[in-house]
Amino acid sequence: MRIRGTIGAWPVDLTLELDGQDWASLRAALAAGTPMAPGPEAVPEQVSSGENTDALWQGCLQVLREAGQLEGTALLATLTALAGSAAAGKRLLVRLRHDSRVRVQHAGDTPVFHWLG
Rank of each mutant, 00 (worst) to 15 (best):
I3D: 00
I3N: 03
R4S: 10
T6L: 13
G8R: 12
G8P: 13
W10Y: 13
D13M: 06
D13A: 15
T15Q: 09
T15C: 09
T15W: 11
E17S: 13
L18S: 06
Q21P: 03
D22H: 15
W23Q: 09
W23A: 08
S25P: 00
L26Q: 07
A28L: 03
L30H: 12
G33F: 09
G33K: 10
M36L: 15
A37D: 09
A42E: 10
V43R: 11
P44W: 07
E45L: 10
E45P: 00
E45G: 04
S49W: 07
S49K: 01
T53L: 06
D54M: 08
L56V: 05
L56P: 00
Q58N: 14
Q58Y: 13
C60H: 01
C60T: 15
L61F: 01
R65S: 05
R65C: 04
A67Q: 05
L70F: 08
T73M: 11
A74M: 03
T78K: 13
L79T: 09
L79S: 02
A81R: 06
A86H: 11
A88R: 04
L96A: 01
R97N: 11
H98R: 06
D99K: 03
D99L: 10
S100E: 13
R101F: 01
Q105K: 12
P111L: 10
V112H: 05
H114W: 10
H114S: 01
L116C: 12
G117N: 02
G117D: 11
